[in-house]
Structures are given as C-alpha cells and as structure tokens.
Design a protein around this nucleic acid. Structure first.
Length: 581
RNA sequence: UGCCCCGUGGUCUAAUGGCAAGACGGCUGACUCUGGAUCAGUUUAUCGAGGUUCGAAUCCUUGCGGGGCAGCCA
C-alpha cells in the first residue's frame, strides 16, 4: 500500500495553521501592504493590524472567496495581527445555518484559524439600533413612508439628481416614535423605512438618502423572531468593523462607491473609524464566479451539485483533489490589485501539479484497457516487481507490483500505424513496461466485424527484467500497465474545463451555451493495480503518465471511484493537437 | 449622459521620479525506466497625444479603451 500519509496528514482539517502565507516568502508586495506599512510607520491604530473575512451565509464559498480569505488572514498573520470571521447576516430571507457551517468548514480546510473570533453582524443588532436612534436624534436619519417604487422614482437617475422625500422633514420625536413602533412590529413589511439624511442631489447614488433599516417580518437564523426590522449592509458593515476594532476593512471593487457612505456613518456617529480598502475580485478563465450563475448550473442539473468537481466552489475543488496548500500558493501568486482581470486557469493547475508532484504516491492504472498477451511468458507464472512509490521522495519507499502473462495497457499507447513523433507501441516495436521489462509487439488481434484492435500479442525479453537491458539498448518509451488477473476494476471520472470559452460571463450569448459538453467523461472499465484496494475517500495518487487522481466519496466497498484532479503536462497531447492527429 | 475606479508581454503581478522584473503560458534544447519531474535557453509589454523634469510606467492635462453604480441584496 503506497504511503499516502504525507499528503493526507499535512495541513488539512485545520490541524495546522498557516504561519506564513507563502513557502519561501516570495509573494509579491501589493498596494494594501503599502498602505499598512505606512499606517504602521505613523503608528495609526497603535500599530495594530486587524482584518476580517465577512461572508454572507447565503451560499457556498468559491475560489474567489479563497483569494479574500488568504488576503485577510494572510495579512493578519504576516503583520502579527488578527483576522475575524464575521458572518454578514442582515438579510434573514436569504441566510441559513447550513451555509455558515459550510463556510466554516471551507475556511478551516484552507488552513486558517479565527480562534474565538467567530462573529455575526446579528450579534450587534441591539447596538446598531442604538446607533440608528442616535442618528435620528441628531437629525441625520428619518423614517420615510414612501413605498419601494416611489423611493426609486425619488432617487433620480445616473445623470439626474433625486428629489427629497416628503417625509424628510419629520421631527426627531416623530421619527423616534415611528422607528420604535417599526421595531415593535406595528407596521407591515415595506410600509416604512429608516433613511439616512444626506443629499438627494449627490452624484454618488449611494449618498441619496440610503435606506438603513427595513421592515422584514421574517425569522432570522440566529435571532429568531426577536426582530422585524433589519439593518442594511452599508449601515451594518462599517459599524460592525468599528465595533470589532477592525483596522483595515478589505472588500471588492464594487464597494468603492460605497466608501463615502461607510465613512459617513462612522463620522456622524463619531466612533472608531476603520479604513475600507477595495481590491479586484478573482476571475478565472473557462469558469464563472457569480453565485447566481453557479446556482443556475446546479438547479438545472448541468453539474451534479455544489461540490461537483467541475465547480469553482471550494467544495468542488476539494472533491476534485486540490490541496489547500496549492490554493494558498495560487492566491499568493496572483497578487492583489485594483484592475479587473481574468487569471489563466493554467496557473491554478500549475500550483496543484507542483504540490501533488512532491507528495502524491505513484501508482499504475489503466483507464481504457487494451489486452496484451505475452506469448513467451508461462501461463501460471506470477512475478512481483519493485516499484518506487515516489521518485521525488526517497522516503516514500517501494511496493511490489504483480506481473503475469496477460496484461492491460492503455489503448492510446498503441497505434497500428504510428505517425512521426509517436514513441509508443506499434507492430514490431519494442517498449518498456514501467518497472517490469521490455516487450515487443508481434501481432494484432482485431474484431472481425468492426476492425477494432482488441488484443496485442507480444513477447518479452527475460534479460530486461526490472526494466534495464544488459546490452544497453534503449527504447523510446515506457508504458504503464496492470496485470489482468491481479488488477481491480475502478470507475474514473475525467474532468475538463467547464466552459469552452475563456470568459463565458463576458459573451453576448447566455453563458450556458458555452458549457463544455466534454467536461465530464465517466470511465467504468478501468483497471488499477492491487495496492489501491484499500484506498479511502480523499486519498490522492498520481496515476503514472496520466495525471493526479483523488478517491471520490462515491467510492463503495470493492468499487473505487476516482476523480481526475488534473492531467500531467502532456507534450504528446500537444503534438497531437497541433498536428491534428 | 453624471460619479467612481482601472489601463505594463498571450495571462497575472512588480518596479511609486533613476537599467521595465518575476511567475504562468508558448517555443528550443539537455536529461530521464513517467513524453512526468528537473535543468538551460528563448519569445513578447508601459493605450494615444501634449506637458512638468537632467530623467516619466510612475506626476499634471486631455483623448481613447475597459469596469462599476439607479435593491427595502451583500
């Protein structure tokens, strides 16, 4: 049994916390570090660095969130500060406990620890209410009784100023009374809102008397039915940051226009003032990151759930076999900036290969078996050859691989009429079987009706046992193989990119028209070497010459299922494609 | 048409007034019992026009291009 312990005990399940974000610490600096360095230099915030990762528990996390998680937790760790996990749960209609659990699992899996700092915006509802009351008393907020449509009309447009609400001049007493009765549940949803009193002519739409509280008679996942008014994001977020003593409140670019409002609340209330800093969210080529679109894929059955290995969700990525280490390295390398960009998915693949190459046990498995009979090998004989578990890791040891008269090799490793640059097996040609011996193809058996090659007749050279020829002759290629009688059947799921175009969300047509019809190929007659008999869900292996594979949870006793995480770099595949073979 | 942000090789990110750097990708080659890994080499960039300056990717003006904003979502 190959030693898979390195991999599976490494840095998962929160057992080990990340100290420095990038092994070798070659992660590039970026503008947020420049800001923090300057803050530290002038001793702003008494030299503290305190960040937070603030997901809304209304869906699953994806690789884009991983960028934010690595940024926030990484910065805290690098500067000797802290990072809170805070659930932004101000909309009871969309949020569920299930999501908070999965978010916690994902953050932990990535290797980060928020210790006892698990917070919820809903923890602050009472305090937030008091802040709202203070704004009303200061004449900075009022209860508006326009309906949603009217508020929209009064807001004006991008190019035209809005006009004041007729309720804008209510007295503080009346506002206080109304707001209190909103809280008491006297009014139906939508009948009143609390609004900030700012400027209906502001060129920034967010400043045109934004709503800060709405009536929602809905049960909240944490506060139950305690409240029937809920604060809006802009009001909640800055004050939650302030309450927690956050120094650097890092969010994505679309909140840039909200920053004046973020600052406004904190200034008007005269409370501790964190700094909001915006960065560009991650986009990856050949996939999508929008929660709504991902939901569409799930609900319409284009993928098999949120953790389908094709999904960019952390659940999907994890199931496909990615390691948290590789995701962290990736996030450190892509940098942090303010320009919208699409990172090549090849970079992500590079980091998972880099990681898995170091740690994953090598093993042989044949995906599309082609029967090979070694004519000069005795019927009943079995030999066991020594195979390296991991050439990159001398400590990984060896294992025995059984060899017998009937074997399977990969169908694509034989061509009756080999083109130029095809080094593998062909009639009359000799190749090496990995760790075993040289074989030469002396005959081809075909299906009489279809003409399909169904069996190869070969001879082996007993002198080459162990893989080396005493006479020093070379072969052009080495093939992986399994012994027919000893191998065990397996299902292997081959995953490919989800979309056929780099930026499906940026196309004119609906993104779903670009779904890759070949994003999943399920192979059910694979044969794998017997050492894999005890493989457990989550175990990762390199199938030699094919790629990295991870045992899927669908695995049942005697029926292993593997997901292909990523292929090996494959020059032959490139040649085939280039020369259209 | 208002406001805000962003334009550096194919991609992502550095250089913050002083030799445009790195990673990925691509292409060569070496090595190899994985066409893997490794190693070496190579290819390609400051959106345009003015200005400030001894000197501009960097500062200013302007044009062009891209993105965001009119939820009682976050």
């Amino acid at each position: 049994m190959p030693d898979n312990e390195h991999l599976n005990n490494r840095k998962e399940n929160g057992k080990e916390t990340v100290q420095s974000t990038f092994a070798g610490s070659t992660a590039p600096s970026h503008f947020i570090r420049v800001i923090i360095d300057e803050d530290l230099r002038v001793n702003k915030n008494d030299g503290r660095v305190h960040t937070r990762f603030p997901p809304e528990p209304n869906g699953y996390l994806h690789i884009g969130h991983a960028k934010s998680i690595c940024l926030n937790f990484g910065l805290a760790s690098d500067y000797g500060g802290l990072c809170n996990l805070r659930f932004d749960d101000t909309n009871p209609c969309k949020e569920e406990v299930e999501f908070v659990e999965s978010i916690k699992e994902d953050v932990r899996w990535l290797g980060f620890d928020w210790e006892d700092r698990e917070f919820y915006a809903s923890d602050y509802f009472e305090k937030l209410y008091e802040y709202a009351v203070q704004l009303i008393k200061d004449g900075k907020a009022y209860v508006c009784s326009l309906n949603a449509d009217e508020i929209r009309e009064y807001r004006g447009t991008l190019t035209e100023p809005g006009k004041n609400s007729p309720y804008r001049n209510r007295s503080a007493e009346e506002n206080l009374d109304l707001f209190e009765r909103m809280r008491e549940g006297e009014f139906p949803d939508g009948s009143h809102v609390l609004r900030a009193n700012i400027d209906m002519a502001s060129p920034n739409l967010n400043m045109r008397d934004p709503v800060i509280y709405r009536i929602l008679h809905a049960e909240h996942h944490r506060t139950g039915n305690t409240w029937c008014i809920y604060p809006m994001y802009d009001f909640t977020h800055c004050l939650s940051d302030s309450i927690e003593g956050i120094t650097h409140s890092i969010c994505t670019l679309e909140f840039e226009d909200h920053r004046p409002l973020y600052d406004w609340f904190l200034d008007e209330l005269d409370v501790f003032h964190p700094q909001q800093i915006e960065f560009a969210r991650l986009n990856l080529s050949y996939t999508i990151m929008s929660k709504r679109k991902l939901m569409e894929l799930v609900e319409e059955g284009h993928v098999n759930g949120w953790n389908d290995p094709r999904m960019p969700t952390l659940g999907g990525i994890r199931r496909s076999g990615y390691t948290p280490e590789s995701i962290r390295n990736f996030c450190d390398r892509i940098g942090v900036a303010k320009s919208n960009s699409i990172v090549d998915i090849a970079l992500l693949e590079y980091y998972i290969r880099e990681d898995l190459n170091k740690y994953s046990p090598r093993v042989m498995g044949v995906l599309r078996p082609l029967r090979v009979v070694i004519e000069n090998y005795p019927e009943d004989k079995v030999e066991y050859f020594d195979a390296l578990n991991n050439p990159e890791d001398p400590g990984a040891g060896m294992r025995k691989v059984p060899f017998s008269r009937v074997l399977y090799i990969e169908q694509e490793d034989f061509l009756e009429e080999p083109p130029r640059k095809f080094y593998r097996l062909a009639p009359g040609r000799e190749v090496r079987l990995r760790y075993a011996c040289f074989i030469k193809c002396v005959g081809v058996v075909k299906d009489e009706t279809t003409g399909e090659v169904v069996e190869l007749r070969c001879t082996y050279d007993p002198e080459t046992r162990g893989g080396a020829a005493p006479d020093g002759r070379k072969v052009k290629s080495t093939l992986h193989w399994v012994s027919a009688a000893h191998s065990i059947p397996a299902e292997v799921r081959l995953y490919d990119r989800l979309f056929t175009v780099e930026n499906p969300a940026g196309e004119e047509d609906d993104f779903k028209t670009f779904l890759n019809p070949e994003s999943l190929e399920t192979l059910t007659s694979c044969r794998i070497e017997p050492s894999l008999a005890g493989a457990k869900s989550g175990d990762r292996y390199q199938f030699e010459r094919l790629g990295y594979f991870c045992v899927d949870p669908d695995t049942s006793k005697g029926k292993p299922v593997f997901n292909r995480t990523v292929t090996l770099r494959d020059p032959w595949a490139k040649i085939k494609k280039r020369e259209k073979l």
